[in-house]
């Protein structure tokens, strides 16, 4: 019973990733694409967590932390680019 519930959760997570993928491709503005990419990252985290419950292992927990870090850094880089036009500044702008 619990296994079927987890499989249902995985199915809906995949649907959510597909919907966000549509927004990445179609998205009218740059901000929509960045938000959709962040959403895909978080859905991937949830999928890995459910998969590690299903397989009764904790070998994938490192992957969750690493994906979280990379998704965080990537979203901040995109936000920086949209707001300022440069990713890494040379001097602190006054």
């Amino acid at each position: 019973m619990f296994t079927h519930f987890l499989m249902g959760c995985l199915f809906f997570l995949i649907l959510s990733i597909l919907a966000a993928l549509y927004r990445v491709i179609k998205g009218p503005s740059m901000s929509d694409r960045v938000m959709a990419l962040d959403n895909i990252g978080i859905n991937l985290l949830a999928g890995v967590a459910i998969l590690s419950i299903l397989l009764h292992t904790h070998a994938f927990l490192d992957i969750i932390l690493l994906l979280g870090i990379l998704s965080f850094v990537g979203t901040i880089a995109f936000a920086r680019y949209i707001e300022r036009g440069v990713v890494i500044e040379h001097k602190h702008s006054e």
Binding site: I69, F72, V73, A77, I88, H90, H92
Partner: peptide, 15 residues
Amino acid sequence: ASGLVLLYLAFDIET
């Protein structure tokens, strides 16, 4: 390297 890149993103290269 990703931690250092996060530092470079939040602050700037000089700092």
